[in-house]
């Protein structure tokens, strides 16, 4: 929660501009006026991290949403109907898994333009087969449960059974995957930044901050340490959130 708050309130929390350059303040170590120091163009690192929080968290959410939007219906249909639909969809999933994610990312970015959103689209698509598989497994397990049989006996339509009786079963595994996915997306954005395909500079996305700072490791440790800590904190809290949710939703682990 605190994370989201700081992300939203970033402009109120800092006296500095995230993009304005200031040659006189180049590579200043952390001090009272610049809590996390400054970067090579004299920009305040703390300010950039605060502004970056919004971008980074948002991109994480976007990519997970995309993965869920593609993966869940896929798994649901494949698991529920079985037969030819299942076989075809699972072949598709196999194909997507076989296809190198990095190629997909490069191609999407090359076609749609260099933008963090497009990068996240690629990350989301690459992740979707995993969701599809997990959902399918859950659906297969749920399908044979007595309450589903009961629903069918009372004349419920397929669509209704799928949405009302089976979909809720998939929520727990999706939450676990999703919280991990947000973290994964932030790291994937960093990797794409490293390859020069991430956030449009000079956006202070966290991964881009790390990638920018990597050439200054020996002279300005603060340029990478603080964004690194920010990512770690975010990943940690998101995962704890996910663990909490899973434990709460899984009766086996409750006692």
């Amino acid at each position: 929660m605190a994370l989201i708050l700081t992300a939203v309130a970033a402009p109120l929390l800092t006296p500095y501009e995230p993009l304005a350059v200031n040659p006189a303040d180049r590579l200043l170590p952390p001090s009272l006026s610049h809590l996390f120091g400054t970067d090579v163009l004299g920009r305040d690192v703390a300010t950039r991290i605060l502004f970056g929080a919004r971008i980074s968290l948002l991109t994480g959410l976007i990519s997970v949403t995309i993965a869920i939007l593609i993966g869940v219906p896929l798994g649901l249909v494949s698991g529920f109907y079985g037969g030819l639909a299942d076989r075809l969809l699972m072949r598709l999933v196999d194909l997507m898994l076989t296809f190198p994610g990095i190629l997909l990312a490069l191609v999407i970015i090359a076609i749609l333009g260099p933008d963090l959103f497009n990068a996240m689209l690629a990350v989301g698509i690459s992740a979707s087969p995993t969701y599809g598989r997990v959902v399918r497994a859950t659906v297969l397990a749920a399908k044979s449960q007595t309450y589903v049989e009961a629903a069918r006996a009372t004349g419920c339509t397929n669509a209704r059974i799928m949405l009302r009786h089976i979909l809720p079963n998939t929520v727990a595994p999706i939450i676990v995957l999703g919280t991990l996915g947000v973290a994964g997306a932030i790291i994937a954005a960093a990797a794409l930044s490293y390859l020069g395909l991430g956030a449009r500079p000079p956006e202070p996305e966290w991964g881009a901050l790390l990638s920018e700072g990597r050439n200054y490791l020996r002279v300005a440790w603060w340029m990478t340490t603080f964004p690194g800590l920010a990512i770690m904190t975010a990943v940690l809290s998101i995962n704890l959130l996910g663990d909490g949710l899973r434990d709460a939703l899984d009766p086996w682990l409750r006692n």
Binding site: V21, L41, G196, P202, E212, N215
Partner: peptide, 19 residues
Amino acid sequence: QPTPQKNQEMAAFVQANLR
């Protein structure tokens, strides 16, 4: 182009100057 890294640093600088 994204590399070398200096490309992006200089671009950010030029952008801020022109702004």
